[in-house]
Design a protein around this nucleic acid. Structure first.
Lengths: 345, 345
DNA sequence: CAACGTTGTTTCAACGTTGTAAACAGCCGC
DNA sequence: GCGGCTGTTTACAACGTTGAAACAACGTTG
């Protein structure tokens, strides 16, 4: 096993605490002893035992990132940024998957108590504001990206209403009139879906256009494909669709193309999330690009403040940036190029 | 903070060790004391402090999963299965990203020593067999999915050579003759790429067909797009392309379509990995589907044996299953359906 | 009835670390 | 030669847990 402070101390002929001081640079240590100790330290390749340190200090240096699904590209991309941001603080990140189930979200908020993690970044789907408020656990918590505003915890997200309005306005600006929203959720009474729906409605109302709404249960490609199929069966199929995220849009795209419809000529299509798939689909996908790096950085910062800062400052609500990225699925493709070219930006 | 054994003991009027015994069910405890203690336990909502337990037992219950990139869909999908498999053992998984850099892979194998994790599942890109063999750290290690056979550590992967041969045979079976391999790696002298290349070569040689090989640096969409562009500029462009993974294939697909070429009529396309994107692209992507759940389960099992088992049994080499999934990008699409349909399987 | 096993419980020590307080050495000025 | 100062080092205890060993109370047995 690895060497302990005691081993180092014995070899260097000093006390354990002096070695600890050298390692941590806390107290004053004379140059000679420091040199002597460091010599032994590097010789034995000392690594502090973090279980012990954590036991002593009550911190673990580990945070949990609880996501609905790691294999949804948006969350995978987001995870990368969270892991990177945490790494700068020398924190490790454990990933928990909730699958959007209430029970698993509860378990995570609950399981936090076992002292394994110093804090949790949760992207909630099922759990409600009331339940969060009732939670007794004092572990630091930050809500990421979705739902529950003015709740009992810090929260970071983009302005979903405005983003949805921007997308819808973009579609309206193309001259489309039968614009459907795809991605309202059957069950959830709160969450992202209502916000995006609200943005869509605002824009449609502002231009006096009729609403068409297709619902889904989960934000996955197959659900987008199915919902799009449903839209096509209606009496007046849409000439544009705003999908509440890119996965839904890619599913919808699949349905449109396999029905022989042209995108965007017959139906314009927009998503939200800016996952990489949408930059390489044919046509490339118009979308809203949340600043994922910023989201992650803010989430980690908020968590850091909760963990290290004075106990109970009021919960913060922080917004992150986004931008509308118009691509082929609304603007149309440039004519087929004889020589290849990279995907649109 | 949470209640400790001491708190419980005080309230229940027994010794700390008795409470510990109740919690762990180790020694015999009389029904009365057990009841009394459990009463207090649940009343105070006791949760063991895992830092302390780990310090005492020398285990952390955490394993690391070190991957090149979490936002590559294949790895994101794989992660889900690893996390699920680990959860069954009540292990947590921390994810580390290497970005395929040698230095970061080294750091992970090295950083393991800080006692934060009981073991590591590594999907190596850069690090070599020799360096792995030279590692002094005794922490359990399992190599996942790629490279380094007969190395110094347990290893689980699909049979890459055979899988690549199967794909190539499939393309040959369609009557294609100018079949290119896309995804050989410039730098790596070992790894997945050479194995897949070998399989491709075997099949081509067996049918006396000429080889065409395009190289990339990373397995990403943009690299696939660029390499495909390169192939199209050649004097005799291919009529089929076997991409060494699905991301490359999706990038290649983008280039083909934006050049006005038809897939598979002009160029048939196959990948490897079976990421979800390929099930919803247009056309859907022919690919090899490794049994990711099996890969993950085996990796976790091997790690468990290393961690818990007797110290040094010889390294194991375990294969996982896969199957060829032929879809539209080689078989062609069924004619555009007036009524929508789900994606091919 | 004394030696013995069984059952239930406790005491003790240790895992490796660090904060606190106290001890120690050297030096100055009176 | 004493008190006081500065700077460096140490002893001690504690974080919460659990294995090993000791202990007490009991019934069994030769």
């Amino acid at each position: 096993m690895g060497a302990s402070l005691r081993d180092i101390a014995r070899l260097a002929g000093v006390s354990v605490k002096t070695v600890s001081n050298v390692v941590n640079g806390y107290a004053r240590v004379s140059p000679e002893t420091r040199a002597k100790v460091e010599e032994v330290l590097s010789q034995l390749e000392y690594r502090p035992n973090l279980s012990a340190r954590n036991l002593r200090q009550g911190r673990t240096g580990v945070i949990a990132l609880a996501l609905p699904e790691l294999d949804a590209p948006y969350f995978a991309e987001l995870s990368r940024f969270v892991i990177d941001a945490a790494a700068e603080l020398r924190w490790l990140v454990v990933i928990e998957q909730t699958d959007g189930s209430l029970e698993r979200e509860r378990r995570i908020l609950d399981g936090v108590r076992d002292h394994r993690v110093d804090g949790v970044i949760l992207s909630p789907i099922a759990i409600g504001a009331d339940e969060l408020a009732a939670r007794t656990d004092a572990t630091a918590l930050v809500l990421l990206g979705e739902r529950i505003h003015d709740g009992p915890a810090d929260h970071v997200a983009i302005d979903n209403v405005r983003a949805a309005r921007d997308v819808t306005e973009h579609l309206i600006g193309l001259g489309r009139t039968r614009i459907a929203a795809l991605g309202a959720e059957d069950n959830a009474a709160s969450g992202t879906a209502p916000l995006r729906l609200a943005g869509y409605r605002e824009a449609m109302a502002a231009h006096g256009l009729p609403e068409t709404i297709a619902t889904v249960e989960r934000y996955r490609r197959d659900q987008g494909a199915a919902a799009m199929a449903g839209l096509l069966e209606r009496a007046e199929p849409p000439d544009a669709v705003f999908c509440f995220n890119d996965l839904l849009a890619l599913g919808a795209l699949r349905t449109l193309l396999s029905c022989g419809l042209r995108v965007p000529e017959d139906v314009a299509l927009a998503g939200l999330d800016d996952i990489e798939d949408g930059r390489f689909s044919t046509p490339t996908l118009t979308t809203v690009a949340p600043d994922k790096a910023e989201l992650a950085r803010i989430a980690v910062d908020l968590l850091k403040q909760r963990i290290e800062g004075p106990a109970d400052h009021p919960p913060k609500e922080v917004g992150a940036g986004y931008r509308l990225v118009a691509r082929e699925s609304t603007l149309g493709r440039s004519p087929a190029r004889p020589r290849p070219a990279g995907p649109g930006r």
